[in-house]
Design a protein around this nucleic acid. Structure first.
Length: 405
DNA sequence: TCTGGGGTCCTAGGACCC
DNA sequence: TCTGGGGTCCTAGGACCC
């Protein structure tokens, strides 16, 4: 113990990103084997009538230039033979859970990044897998997911999240690609800036104005030049990313920061009473989901998208979190009327969101009963209604009376 | 072409407090 | 009378991701 403490030599992390191939397309085919299951040219998402967009396009339709996020009407123009299937929501959630369950059998550190992808930290599992290569483990994982969940996935691996992510993209479809420790820079030389997570159309355009479109070009620049163009914080960020470096942490427990429900109307709404009716329906959905998670929210946000696609929002924070449809609706209604007073045009979308979420402290229940926006009695009524709906169906308890209050 | 729904994170100004 | 600096919170907007 007389030797000076040497800094711990960090072993390179071993991270995987498991990404389901054309996830919603796979789910739609499982949900309807005789219909969507037989269609090669398949689009999953909203219909053109409801101003829908493509949530996921089968590989066969992508050859026509179809991409997810594209208006369904536009996709059908590119690929007139395609069939449109709805998103089978509950099956997608079920499949997502099944995939994750398989992954947790390989490592306890699994972080869902979205419904169809998850990061897995395999650091420290070398001995457990008898020094099998990371790519070898990934291939067994892929086969297990296919066998147990019936879902085809691609898997990328590397010493950081960004490398795992980029490698997974390159492994598609149904492949495995691991960037070995030491090979990071070589791999990044082949990456377009546009493809780096966190670089979207706006930043890509700004970088292109400085003649930067590839990671390789960016690798040749020192920090100072980058800082002059981007400012210190974005420069440091990009300097690391083009080298395949990020903080590399995989968090298996992350709490939700926000929850929202929104709806785009088939036809723009212009009348305030119609908007209030829609607002109430959204408050009821959001309230039920909030209570199911055992959460209360301190901030309510109303989002309005006008006919010209301009999006506006208004929010309000209160001291005590709320959870009832009634409190959410009443706060939302006053926010909506503010937005409507500012600008009164047709509305194509209305939404309610909540943030500053927390589980209620068990002791402070009745303290603010009289003063608060939501009483204990309100909460008991809301929960009783939840129970009735669970037992007798969605329409067992109608929210109509809230409108008269 | 005519633009969904669910999220995360960041920035910037102003209020307010010390 | 004129003038501080720092910290935290709220609000609005926007970029980005799947």
């Amino acid at each position: 113990m007389h030797t000076p403490a040497s800094p711990p030599t960090p072993r390179p992390r071993r991270l995987l990103l498991v990404d389901c191939d054309q996830f919603f397309v796979q789910c739609a085919r499982i949900a309807d084997p005789d219909g969507a299951g037989r269609q090669a040219l398949l689009l999953v998402g909203g219909s053109p009538r409801s101003r829908g967009v493509v949530t996921s396009a089968s590989y066969e339709t992508r050859a026509f230039g179809v991409r997810s996020g594209m208006p369904t009407a536009a996709a059908l123009r590119l690929c007139p033979g395609a069939v449109v299937a709805p998103v089978p929501r509950s099956l997608c959630l079920e499949k997502s859970r099944e995939v994750r369950a398989v992954l947790r059998d390989f490592s306890p550190v699994v972080e869902p990044a979205s419904i169809d992808e998850a990061y897995i930290d395999m650091s420290g599992t070398e001995a457990l897998y008898a020094h099998e290569s990371l790519a070898g483990t990934a291939r067994r994982m892929q086969a297990d997911v296919r066998a147990r969940a019936g879902i085809a996935v691609s898997i990328g691996g590397g010493t950081s999240r960004i490398l795992a992510k980029l490698a997974a993209g390159r492994a598609k479809p149904a492949g495995v690609l691991v960037v070995e420790p030491g090979a990071e820079i070589e791999f990044m030389r082949s990456v377009l800036l546009r493809d780096i997570p966190g670089i979207g159309p706006v930043l890509a355009e700004e970088l292109a104005r400085h003649e930067l479109t590839t990671a390789e070009q960016t690798l040749g620049l020192d920090r100072v030049a980058l800082e002059q163009w981007l400012g210190p914080s974005r420069a440091r960020w990009l300097f690391d990313r083009v080298r395949g470096i990020d903080d590399g942490h995989v968090h298996s427990t992350r709490e939700a920061r926000s929850m929202s429900r929104e709806e785009t109307f088939p036809v723009d709404l212009t009348e305030d009473p119609d908007l209030q009716t829609q607002l109430l329906a959204l408050a009821v959905r959001l309230g039920a989901d909030l209570r199911r998670e055992g959460l209360r929210a301190r901030t309510i946000t109303v989002k309005l998208r006008d006919s010209d696609f301009r999006t506006r929002q208004a929010s309000k924070t209160v001291d005590e979190g709320v959870e009832t449809d009634r409190a959410i609706y009443e706060m939302a209604r006053s926010l909506l009327s503010r937005l409507r007073q500012d600008r009164r045009t047709g509305a194509r979308l209305l939404g309610i969101g909540v943030t500053k979420l927390a589980a209620p402290a068990p002791t402070q229940a009745a303290m603010f009963d009289e003063a608060g926006i939501e009483s204990d009695r309100d909460r008991r009524l809301a929960r009783a209604a939840d129970v009735a709906r669970a037992k007798f169906g969605r329409d067992a308890v109608r929210p109509g009376r809230l409108l008269d209050s």
